[in-house]
């Protein structure tokens, strides 16, 4: 097996060792999903059956996919690289014949795969049954959705990785983490769909990479965005992927030269 597949498989198995955490994740995400669905449905009903392009069915799908993806495409709380810089264990990663970013990126794919299968899929299946929303039937929706989700995960990883790289310059980065968490949970469209934002906030969100992580892929997989409208969305995701890729490469290059390994 190639090193990339090995890393995916190893992280997949590592994640699967914490089965209780997965079960707890399904439970919490499920409960919060029901609350969020209730709030959004009330908003849609209050607006006369349609708000920001959402009707009752697409609103439920938006919440359902949002909750299902929370494990696979985490918005916050991923600080593995930063904590290894803090303890000095990053020395071990750097003393290996593999690029730091490649190493963590493939591990992240394994993590996402396990989180999707262990946490996302049960929520999707349970949610579809409980809330009576059948999955989309059009294969093009599935195709666009899958592509959008893969790109969304990539953009999301690069965002998290860039945040972690800040620790190469400043060890104490809790402030950055909190800022990122606030900005991300708003601008990704996870808390409230960006289509419901006031104009000025929507403009800010649209000029940021954050909707590419969440709002856009969910729009694609729930069948809200279809037909020729899919192409510009995929294009925007690809553009942000490229921008963040170049950005994180530059950060990795200079960061590893600047880094002071902590501890003796």
């Amino acid at each position: 097996m190639s090193v990339h597949l090995q890393l995916i498989a190893a992280e997949f198995r590592r994640q699967s060792t914490y089965r209780l955490a997965l079960a707890a994740g399904v439970f919490t995400n499920g409960i919060f999903g029901l609350i969020r669905a209730g709030v959004l449905l009330a908003a849609v009903a209050g607006a006369g059956g349609e708000a920001g392009g959402y009707d009752a069915r697409t609103a439920i799908l938006y919440v359902l996919w949002g909750q299902a993806l929370l494990g696979a495409i985490p918005m916050w709380g991923w600080n593995e690289v930063a904590s290894r810089v803090r303890t000095g264990e990053i020395a071990v990663d750097l003393a290996r014949p593999i690029d730091l970013q490649v190493y963590w990126w493939f591990r992240d794919l394994g993590r996402a795969a396990m989180q999707f299968l262990g946490r996302g899929l049960p929520i999707l299946i349970l949610g579809s049954v409980v809330l009576r929303v059948p999955p989309p039937t059009d294969p093009l929706v599935w195709l666009a959705g899958a592509l959008g989700l893969i790109l969304g995960l990539a953009v999301n990883f690069l965002g998290r990785y860039a945040l972690n790289l800040i620790s190469f310059w400043t060890i104490e980065m809790q402030g950055f983490q909190i800022l990122y968490m606030v900005v991300v949970s708003l601008l990704t469209g996870f808390t409230v769909p960006i289509h419901l934002f006031p104009g000025w906030l929507k403009t800010i969100a649209e000029w940021s990479p954050f909707p590419s992580m969440y709002q856009y892929p969910v729009d694609l997989i729930s069948g809200r965005t279809t037909g020729v409208d899919v192409l510009p969305i995929i294009g925007i995701q690809l553009a942000w992927l490229l921008v963040l890729l170049v950005g994180t490469r530059v950060m990795t290059h200079f960061g590893t030269r600047r880094l002071v390994i902590q501890g003796g």
Partner: peptide
């Protein structure tokens, strides 16, 4: 070997660390 730091995968059986390292070193 950086004395206090581990290069092994903490949550996986020891055997798997060797497999991964073998792959990393190609």
């Amino acid at each position: 070997v950086f004395g206090q730091r581990t290069q092994l995968w903490w949550d996986l059986p020891l055997r798997e660390s060797f497999t991964i390292l073998g792959a990393i070193h190609r």
